[in-house]
């Protein structure tokens, strides 16, 4: 690799890394506060308000959350929804995006118009609820997987990624007798791994955060995903039930402030852990080279 080693270039490198480093620092400080807070004692949080490192280490918040007997079950539900849902999303989105990326397709425009129209207009919560109910999906996990199976936004962008692939590759594959599914599987998908990884992440995060549709479509609380549980814990820690003077009117004391923060840590962690594994797909130009070679 030929390297550009002029003074201006090096100065730019220094400035660039300083700027990005500062930006990263600004964005991460509040998360450190949340992390620190989740391990802090109530006394320290109440007295100092803002801390970046707890002087006294406490696991009380995590003990409180993990004492919930249904935590593991709802975590399981969420993992299932995330894996199965993302798989469905990616398969259906790619299947639809590829034909739309092909300019020789008849009716391409009206179909795209139909997709884009749904981004602007929607029937709203109640009519969608009724459709889900009529399909018999109430209380079934299908109600969390199918109503959002394709995001129009993601579809349009994946389509445009597909369109940008060098056309020559497809042409030569076709001349060699490859069928359309063959081209999609062997050429388009491998070449679009950065995009597939990106949109898998987008979809997965969406499933991970499933909350509203679960409350709406699932009556059986045993099937609730983890976000429902975590939000209930947050409400509890805000003394939410106190306003209604319910539970243990006699001696109810809301759990520690740190619980709220621990909830955030728990609900963010898995996604953060997954990210670095996806990152390797963003490595510049690697795939293109390998396929061509």
């Amino acid at each position: 690799m030929v390297r550009d080693r002029t003074f201006g270039s090096r100065l730019f490198d220094v400035l660039n890394i300083t700027f990005l480093g500062l930006f990263a620092l600004i964005t991460i400080v509040p998360f450190i506060y949340i992390m620190a807070g989740s391990f802090a004692t109530q006394k320290e949080l109440l007295e100092k308000g803002f801390i970046l490192f707890p002087t006294e280490f406490s696991l009380e918040a995590y003990n409180f959350i993990f004492s919930t007997s249904t935590l593991m079950r709802s975590m399981g539900v969420t993992i299932f929804i995330t894996v199965a849902g993302t798989l469905i999303n990616i398969v259906l989105t790619c299947l639809m995006a590829y034909p739309l990326a092909r300019k020789d397709l008849d009716f391409r425009k009206p179909i795209q118009l139909m997709v884009i129209f749904t981004m602007l207009f929607s029937g709203g919560m109640i009519p969608t609820f009724i459709v889900v109910k009529e399909l018999g999906m109430i209380d079934s996990y299908w109600s969390l997987l199918l109503p959002g199976a394709i995001s129009a936004f993601n579809l349009i962008i994946i389509r445009s990624f597909f369109q940008q692939l060098p056309e020559g590759l497809e042409e030569s594959a076709k001349i060699d007798g490859a069928s359309d599914p063959g081209i999609l599987m062997r050429i388009v998908i491998p070449l679009s791994m950065p995009a597939i990884a990106t949109f898998s992440l987008f979809y997965a995060v969406g499933h991970w955060n499933t909350f509203f549709s679960a409350v709406l479509y699932i009556n059986d609380a045993a099937k609730w995903p983890i976000q429902v549980l975590l939000r209930q814990i947050v409400i509890l820690s805000q003394g939410g039930s106190l306003g209604d003077t319910t539970a243990f009117e006699s001696d109810f004391v809301p759990p520690e402030q740190s619980v709220k923060m621990a909830v955030i840590v728990i609900s963010t962690m898995p996604i953060l852990v997954v990210y670095p594994f996806l990152q390797k797909h963003f490595a510049k130009g690697v795939l293109l080279g390998s396929v061509k070679g």
């Binding site: 798989l87 079934s140 599914p181 599987m185």
Partner: peptide
């Protein structure tokens, strides 16, 4: 082709599993 049919088979299997999980109680 074989790969494609194989993965279609997997997808069908997963769909089947999903169906098995969906209940109708409540």
């Amino acid at each position: 082709w074989r790969k494609l049919t194989a993965s279609a088979g997997t997808a069908a299997l997963i769909m089947g599993l999903l169906a098995g999980c969906s209940g109708n109680g409540g």
